[in-house]
Design a protein around this nucleic acid. Structure first.
Lengths: 197, 197
DNA sequence: TTATATTGTCTAATGTCATTAGTCACGCGA
DNA sequence: TCGCGTGACTAATGACATTAGACAATATAA
């Protein structure tokens, strides 16, 4: 006993990710994680500040991963193409990492946990910058970001939690949903350009 | 000890609702509920089948309450007016009963829990009947219901879990979000009527 | 190379919760 | 008044999280 396994935070987070994504975030306990790592649960306190700390680290990991994925997805695209690519990639992330996706809510306020709050801003800022380059009246930007986020997140959340009764054509429904919002955004852009002229 | 308090299921569910709505569904335990009722936790097994059974009863209660509220809200309205009224009332329900709202997800599949699944269909059917009376190509009905549900649920979920960083004008953003979807639905209806002619 | 400090794991103990089994008081109907 | 069912109870078990403190393995310094 007492031998060192050389366990570090990355391995802990990787194993936690595995559990959360395959069995659900709710199934991630210090006990289950310790067991997966071949260690006793108190040992995890060396790497992580209890269960809350573990979840916090998982959220950081998720935010970093997602930010990279979305940035790559939008790479070289502009306007509605970029928005669509981001939405599709976010849904793909949620499918591949349902446990990590779950860690995004509830989100901490900036005064509760400034570091985590700012890590979570990455994706929001990305969408914001796309809209900023889209010639939209600044007054409309925030409501439109929220509409898009709501539609995409709502769809994913319902999909992940069996909210849609019928299994048919879920991909089609997703396309309809995001096109509906993104085309409206494009229409607002059009209008802004006409008003300018 | 051993005196009968005449506790019944309604009182149990009412107290559970109170806890879930004020402290969050996660704070609803048999221990906290028993304590609120002045009773020991094993006593609750007389009224409810464990914690899972309690949550199930809470979901039934929530579904009944919501179905009544939405039906009343849509009373006498048609088309986009009805859809707007339903969306607004759903958000209001979520504000007044965040704990009950949370019980709607995850939703059981019809073969897991047929009774509960059918209780949850109430609100969905209501929206379906509004759309059915709206002269929309049946092929589009399901995707449009899903788009509306996604947008409304996503907005509520983000709002309840502090997903929106800025506090400004959340009501406005909600209006924007649902108008965006509902106006698109109206446009699809228009188009269907033109095609008919 | 040996002594020392640090690090990572362990065992032991406590407290909270859900759950099950079995006990017993209350009050209604015969 | 008797008896019996209902609805509470206590006791016990097992899964967790968490803290404290022991100890072995490694890294560092003399």
């Amino acid at each position: 006993m007492g031998r060192k396994l050389g366990l570090d935070l990355d391995q802990v987070v990787a194993a936690a990710t595995q559990i959360a994504d395959s069995e659900g975030l709710g199934a991630l306990s210090l006990a289950s994680l310790a067991s997966a790592l071949g260690v006793r649960s108190p040992s995890l306190y060396t790497h992580v500040d209890g269960l809350d700390g573990l979840r916090r680290q998982l959220t950081f990991h998720a935010a970093r991963l997602l930010t990279v994925e979305l940035t790559d997805a939008a790479e070289g695209l502009e306007g509605t193409k970029a928005l669509t690519a981001i939405a599709v990639q976010l849904r793909s992330f949620a499918h591949r990492h349902p446990g990590l996706y779950e860690t995004f809510l509830p989100a901490p306020t900036p005064d509760e946990d400034p570091d985590l709050a700012s890590a979570l801003e990455g994706p929001v800022k990305l969408v914001g910058s796309v809209l900023a380059s889209m010639n939209i009246d600044p007054i409309h930007v925030i409501p439109l970001i929220r509409a898009l986020r709501s539609a995409v997140h709502g769809f994913i959340d319902l999909e992940l939690h069996a909210g849609f009764g019928l299994p048919d054509d879920i991909d089609d429904s997703f396309t309809t949903t995001i096109n509906l919002v993104i085309e409206t955004i494009a229409a607002v852009e059009e209008k802004a350009m006409l008003d300018q002229a």
